[in-house]
Write a protein that binds this DNA or RNA. Sequence first.
DNA 1: ATAATACTTGACAAAAACAGTAGGGTTTTA
DNA 2: TAAAACCCTACTGTTTTTGTCAAGTATTAT
Lengths: 159, 159
Amino acid sequence: MLRLSTKGQYGVRAMYEIARGYPETPVTIKEISERQDVSVAYLEQILNKLRKAGLIKSIRGPGGGYVLNRSADKISIASILNELEGPVALTSCLDPEGGCVRIDSCVTHLLWKALGEQVEAFLKTITLKNLMAGDFYALGGMAKKEMRRSIRLKPQSQP
Amino acid sequence: MLRLSTKGQYGVRAMYEIARGYPETPVTIKEISERQDVSVAYLEQILNKLRKAGLIKSIRGPGGGYVLNRSADKISIASILNELEGPVALTSCLDPEGGCVRIDSCVTHLLWKALGEQVEAFLKTITLKNLMAGDFYALGGMAKKEMRRSIRLKPQSQP
DNA sequence: ATAATACTTGACAAAAACAGTAGGGTTTTA
DNA sequence: TAAAACCCTACTGTTTTTGTCAAGTATTAT
Ligand code: FES
Ligand code: FES
């Protein structure tokens, strides 16, 4: 349950590649495509959304590509997924627009709300910088004991 | 993003109704249908799965209905959703069966894994009893400050 | 017995969401 | 002015979701 769409997954991985070039080198779609194994056409759609959202900016023409619009520690995973998949809303009743008539008598509404908020809090604490550094811990969501435990990712060689 | 399917949502609400009858009164599909506004035929599918999973048992014939198979404080929301939507797996790479070739070099894999585990931990701590009592707090997932804050649901009158 | 109640099962179908392609642009630089 | 690179919209095939339908089987009350 709770599958993330490929747009969201690819989006985060694409942002990671762009972050690696920051602030020196614009990263082209082609490069991202090759490194992350996602088609150029599909990436175009994804990066378009992220650009319009102000997370990245594009530089056209030869030597161009994509660059982060602000530093990697100011871009959370939540902000990326929000653009590509919309806000966390475990039920349609929780959609920003979608009202529900049963909402006041519903026994589960606050449960889904609480869970959604927790997920959001988790994703907000993790930035591209955390992702690149390889250690991320959930300030918003984990118990104190867990907070001190960081998870180390395999370092990836720069090509 | 991260929408729960209606099967999962209805399933929890149905279990709540069955829990209300426990241990005295078997609850019929028709009653659940009326109280939770879900079609009888659809509920049949849902309750069938939950029965096969051993969460509830059925009593056939007049006066019959569904009954919890163990007490409400021993049935977590996680166990219900697990039957109806499968295990939490934010990506196909995290599916119990689905292997991924990129898994060792993937920069996001551990991120999705961590988030999934957190969601699972949250749902495991909340039982039908918590849901009925109206106060649930996330032992597994929340910071200490949050843990003390319980969320009170509107009491629902027994018909 | 038998009628009424209630669960059981499998097939099926409409609708929505997803995943991705295709093909035509425009802008910038060398 | 050609090549590199981004920009934009439409479209399509597939899968998942969200149910319905129809024909059972088991149990109880009378
Ligand atoms: S059914 Fe809409 S809030 Fe629960
Ligand atoms: S793509 Fe499969 S683990 Fe990341």
